[in-house]
């Protein structure tokens, strides 16, 4: 399930929803991303997140499907926040249920890495010296490409 929302989310609630999804789950891996307090500029006061409604959901659903082909995935939830966010705010949640931990860890990391380079979100850093669109990092591209190499 993919949810794009402005509102914050509660880790305990999300974990419980994954746990209740049942069907043979023996491991749940979750990842939470936060707004860092430093970015390309050093006086960042917050972020604004824009997305492409419709495409965003389709892309992430596709990543969950792909993860399900490569690993044992019993259930997956992805939440991504949009709009104005403050430093330290939760921005993204990925949770994966699997039979075993190896698949839960791998699928969770794959979904997160691939989301960073393929889901249409854009961050604008707000700072005292002006606003600025964040550039994609080479390290994020490399990290995402690793998964394609591992499949070959």
């Amino acid at each position: 399930m993919v949810i794009i929302q402005a509102a914050d989310f509660d880790l305990a609630e999300e974990y419980q929803k994954l746990r209740n999804s049942g069907n043979g789950t023996g491991a749940i891996a979750t990842f939470t991303g936060l707004v860092r307090d430093h970015g390309d500029l050093d006086d960042v006061t917050g972020l604004f997140l824009e997305h492409y409604p419709g495409m965003t959901e389709q892309v992430i659903e596709g990543l969950i499907t792909e993860a399900g082909k490569r690993w044992d995935v019993r259930a997956a939830r992805v939440i991504h926040r949009i709009g104005s966010l403050a430093l330290g705010d939760q921005i993204v949640f990925v949770g994966v249920c699997s039979a075993h931990r190896g698949d839960a860890f791998a699928a969770c990391q794959f979904i997160m890495d691939a989301l960073k380079t393929s889901a249409p979100f854009w961050k604008k850093e707000l700072s005292r010296s002006g606003d600025h669109w964040v550039e994609q990092k080479d390290s994020d591209r490399t990290q995402s490409e690793q998964w394609h190499k591992r499949q070959e």
């Binding site: 993204v92 960073k116 889901a119 854009w122 961050k123």
Partner: peptide
């Protein structure tokens, strides 16, 4: 059709 900069979510 949509054109956009490299994505920076997550």
């Amino acid at each position: 059709v949509a054109f956009f900069p490299p994505v920076t979510g997550g």
